[in-house]
């Protein structure tokens, strides 16, 4: 049913820490692995061993460079998967009812048996979170690992999304964002979690934690460059080497331009 629920009992989602993500792409690979072996059509690869390999992924890691007004630029690794939006435009455009948002936990899913592969939902998503699988012809998107989080056949510690379980930096957190006392909600409150493209009114459930300000060593004396070198001439082995090389290169040494 493509009418959005007026409210959901819980809002399960991810909180992604842009401060700690190291851009290793482990979540990309584990997501592809889990979702190829489990729920729905496998995530296909086209021309995997050829000149132009490409394929379907539910999670991708971008990398940006941010240049502040002063000071050095900073690199930010930026994982992106479906944000399980509260006001999901991808759901309402679907003509078949294949796309839906679950009342019980807010997860946005595609029922592949109903999908006609029109791609309109991917057009409606601002975040590029939906990819039409080129072999299966149906729409693929992050399932929030719905087949792990409730899966009693898995040990308890594995009942979280594959990407969260895999992340070596602990940059991905999973929980109920509708519950103000959940760990993820506290994290968002503490770190100022933010929405992506809020101007489009999608009300994403997933939140992004901004990078913390970088440490700066402000204790370096501004006169430091004018201080005399501690050692005028190299001594010991370095001194010998300096002299030896100086002889070879025609008596030039790199200290004080002596010739």
């Amino acid at each position: 049913m493509t009418q959005l629920p007026t409210s959901t009992e819980r809002s399960l989602g991810l909180v992604i820490d842009l401060d700690t993500c190291v851009g290793c792409h482990a979540c990309v690979i584990s997501c592809k692995g889990w979702n190829t072996e489990n729920y729905g059509a496998p995530l296909s690869d086209i021309d995997a061993y050829g000149a132009n390999p490409h394929g379907t992924f539910l999670n991708r890691v971008h990398a940006y460079e941010v240049q502040p007004e002063t000071g050095p630029a900073q690199t930010v690794h930026f994982p992106k998967s479906c944000l399980h939006c509260e006001d999901a435009p991808c759901v309402t455009v679907c003509p078949t009812g294949a796309s839906y948002k679950r009342v019980e936990d807010g997860i946005v899913l595609v029922n592949e048996d109903d999908c006609i592969g029109c791609g309109l939902c991917a057009w409606a998503c601002p975040y590029g979170a939906r990819e039409l699988d080129q072999l299966a012809g149906v729409m693929k998107k992050c399932t929030l690992c719905v087949d792990r989080i409730y899966n009693e056949n898995l040990p308890e510690e594995d009942r979280v999304p594959s990407c969260v379980r895999t992340c070596p930096a602990g940059a991905r957190h999973f929980g109920d964002l509708a519950d103000p006392d959940s760990d993820v909600s506290k994290l968002v409150a503490e770190r100022g979690g933010m929405d992506l493209m809020p101007e489009l009114g999608t009300k994403p459930v997933n939140k992004y934690l901004p990078p913390r300000p970088r440490d700066r060593d402000d204790n370096i004396d501004i006169l430091a460059p004018f201080l005399d070198p501690v050692i005028e001439e190299p001594t010991g082995f370095l001194g010998w080497l300096d002299k030896a090389l100086g002889t070879v290169s025609g008596g030039k040494t790199d200290k004080k331009g002596a010739s």
């Binding site: 390999p53 940006y64 941010v66 240049q67 101007e199 901004p210």
Partner: peptide
């Protein structure tokens, strides 16, 4: 900047794309 939420830090540009090949998007 609004897409990444990083505008508060400065001017944003792509450093590396997330994949070397193309994709559906």
């Amino acid at each position: 900047e609004t897409a990444t939420g990083l505008g508060f830090m400065g001017k944003v540009r792509q450093f590396e794309p997330p994949h070397t090949g193309t994709n559906y998007l």
